[in-house]
Design a protein around this nucleic acid. Structure first.
Length: 605
RNA sequence: GGGGGCGUAGCGAAGCUGGUUUAUCGCGCCGGCCUGUCAAGCCGGAGAUCGCGGGUUCAAGCCCCGUCGCUCCCGCCA
């Protein structure tokens, strides 16, 4: 049967349209049947319009209306009517009008839903993913998909305006070492050989610079076979960018302009022209992480000197072992219960802290210096503690009466910082300091170039092997790899790493030295990256780039905490798609063609 | 690889220390009433092998063992 095609959408009609005859297509969002009269909220992507089957409608029409259930797909024709003043719904954009139905077609029917499609639906993620097509009908998901589209569009708009070319790179590439596990694609034509799906287009974009493309970008799908997290999926999308003849600050300001445009266009939000910059070392010392949430302060302090004067053996041992003692002031939280403090300690222990010490600050009597109370106070103010230590500590922390002080010591400086940093994050959340409507960007710069791998007893690249070591370290690179800073930068937003990038090495000799430090022999380099080193023999330009994560960006803009919310068809935490039950077995014939044999894992115990 | 949490009707939850029960509640669903609702309202109804398997017990949704699934985190991963 020919269906009645819409003349407008469910979000379009206003008071001025009264009197018009219109046709609408959409889904029954809700129905209210009053016996004589019935109201149907008809929904499409553009909005919701109330359509009315009046009491004096003909019998056949009333019969059709009586049949309607949620999510039936309809076509209706009717006259737009201004609602009487008392019946205007100010919460609906179309609330001043309704459509009086003269013709109603049920296009398709809908079975009882597995969950309700509205703002109140609180179905489990598992169920939502299985019926993703229904979940995507909800207003919240429609908003997320629209925002994602608009962000991607604004990215293209802005980068094109700055002269970038969008260039596609292959998704079947050769497997390269380092980084995450690759997803592999077997080759039918070449038995025993495999393509890999790219973890990122890193090598291609550098080669495009050698090709003189000058400014490249791509909204690129990336694949990493690692365990999922709230902000991680096996496949995800990066706004991949690379530029020639630039230095670090050129890349940073380009990104500041890009994000400024994107936030202005999509959220109407004005970002600062420049984002603050924090060195990696400072970020670790103050916030215990390289991706601090800067919507709140609660910065940590180093109290090593003061802890050394205390009688707290655990602290002194940590310091003697070359570690650190870090402290954090929770303002006005002296009323925290034992249980609340234990919950904070649990957060610290996740990052391998052995414990968390604390004390409360109370007013001294008669204007005397502040008193320490409870927990570890006796080590600073008790018997045997040096006179004045307590007040020195309170002064150094800038604490006042009524504050709670939290401390973590560890023989490893990083463990102390990360653990108390986790406490800081939890405190920020618990105290409601993480307003999802606020966007606090920062650049983290001066990352270490190399990290010592304790298991393998060797240096490895903290970022990747093509990162430029900062020039001031070129002379001492081999003698002291640990102190070399790379020309590296991360963009962080509200506690998430939003982008990561670097200036790359374009000098083949320097590249060889870096390979050597991370134990990558010339033969290895030749075998794995031969095409790149070969390309770099032919006049490569100085270049650098960055790759903001589109999923995380949209997630934060939408106020979500999982990128699954802003991906149309995500995988669950076990890399499975519950809707289509993927991954799944394939036919033996397909395996045969690919020369692949499945070997059952032997039962081991 | 490791740790925390969860699994009770289509959905979301409650169910105390194992026992006065026929496993409770809200939404949804089915039937009826209702002319202005917009999370409509009122009356009635159906719907559950309490994830699965085993064990302890006079008695198990609740305790024990195993197993499957989901979720968050550490590791891993830029």
């Amino acid at each position: 049967m020919e269906y009645l095609k819409r003349t407008t959408t469910c979000g379009a009609l206003r008071k001025g349209d009264a009197g018009q005859i219109v046709a609408l297509n959409g889904w029954v969002h809700r129905k209210r049947d009053h016996g004589g009269i019935s109201f149907i909220n008809l929904r499409d992507r553009y909005g919701i319009t109330q359509v009315v089957v009046d009491a004096d409608a003909e019998a056949a029409l009333k019969a059709s209306a009586a049949e309607l259930k949620n999510e039936y797909c309809l076509s209706v024709r009717g006259r737009v009517r201004a609602r009487p003043d008392s019946m205007v719904n100010p919460d609906m954009p179309t609330g001043e009008i309704e459509v009086v139905v003269s013709e109603l077609q049920i296009l398709t029917r809908c079975e009882t839903l597995p969950f309700q499609i509205d703002e109140r639906s609180d179905a489990k993620e598992e169920t939502r993913l299985k019926y993703r097509y229904l979940d995507l009908r909800s207003g919240a998901m429609q908003y997320r998909m629209r925002l994602r589209h608009e962000v991607a569009f604004a990215v293209r708009e802005h980068l094109a305006s700055e002269g970038f070319y969008e260039i596609e790179t292959p998704t079947f590439i050769r497997s390269t070492p380092e980084g995450a596990r690759d997803y592999l694609v077997p080759s039918r034509l070449y038995p025993g050989k495999f393509y890999a799906l790219p973890q990122s287009p890193q090598l291609y974009k550098q080669i495009l610079m050698v090709s003189g493309m000058d400014k490249y970008f791509q909204i690129a799908r990336c694949y990493r076979d690692e365990d999922a997290r709230g902000d991680r999926q096996p496949e995800f999308t990066q706004i991949d960018i690379e530029m020639s003849f630039v230095k670090r600050d050129d890349v940073l300001s380009m990104v500041e302009r890009l994000f400024g445009h994107v936030f202005r266009k999509t959220l109407g939000e004005e970002l600062p022209a420049n984002f603050r910059r924090i060195s990696y070392d400072e970020s670790m010392e103050l916030y215990g992480t390289d991706k601090p949430d800067l919507r709140f302060g609660l910065a940590m302090k180093d109290i090593g000197d003061l802890a050394a004067r205390s009688t707290f053996q655990a602290f002194k041992d940590a310091l003697a072992a070359g570690g650190a003692v870090k402290a954090l002031v929770a303002p006005d939280k002296a009323d925290y219960s034992r249980k609340q403090i234990e919950e904070l300690e649990a957060a610290a222990k996740v990052y391998r802290a052995k414990g968390m010490a604390w004390f409360k600050v109370a007013a001294g009597e008669g204007g005397a210096a502040a008193q320490l109370e409870g927990g570890a106070s006796k080590f600073f103010a008790g018997e045997g503690a040096p006179a004045g230590l307590a007040s020195d500590l309170v002064a150094a922390l800038g604490a006042k009466s009524g504050d709670l002080v939290l401390m973590v010591a560890d023989a490893k400086r990083k463990v102390a910082c990360q653990s108390l940093g986790a406490v800081r994050s939890k405190l920020g959340k618990d105290l409601g300091l993480c307003d999802p409507k606020r966007f606090e960007f920062a650049w983290i710069v001066d990352f270490p170039m190399f990290e010592w791998n304790e298991d393998e007893n060797r240096w490895e690249a903290a970022h990747h092997m093509f990162t430029m070591p900062q020039e001031r370290f070129h002379a001492t690179m081999e003698s002291d790899p640990g102190s070399v800073k790379g020309d590296l930068y991360d963009l962080v937003l509200n506690g998430y790493e939003l982008a990561s990038g670097s200036i790359r090495i374009h000098d083949p000799d320097l590249q060889k030295r870096v390979f050597k430090i991370v134990g990558f022999s010339e033969e290895d380099a030749q075998k794995k990256f031969g095409f790149l080193t070969e390309a770099f023999k032919y006049g490569p330009p100085p270049h650098g780039g960055i790759a903001p994560g589109l999923d995380r960006l949209v997630m934060l803009m939408a106020g979500d905490t999982s990128i699954k919310e802003v991906i149309a068809f995500p995988k669950n935490s076990f890399a499975v798609s519950p809707m289509d039950d993927c991954p799944n077995e394939v036919d033996q014939k397909q395996l045969d063609e690919l020369h692949i044999k499945i070997v059952e894992k032997a039962e081991s115990k």
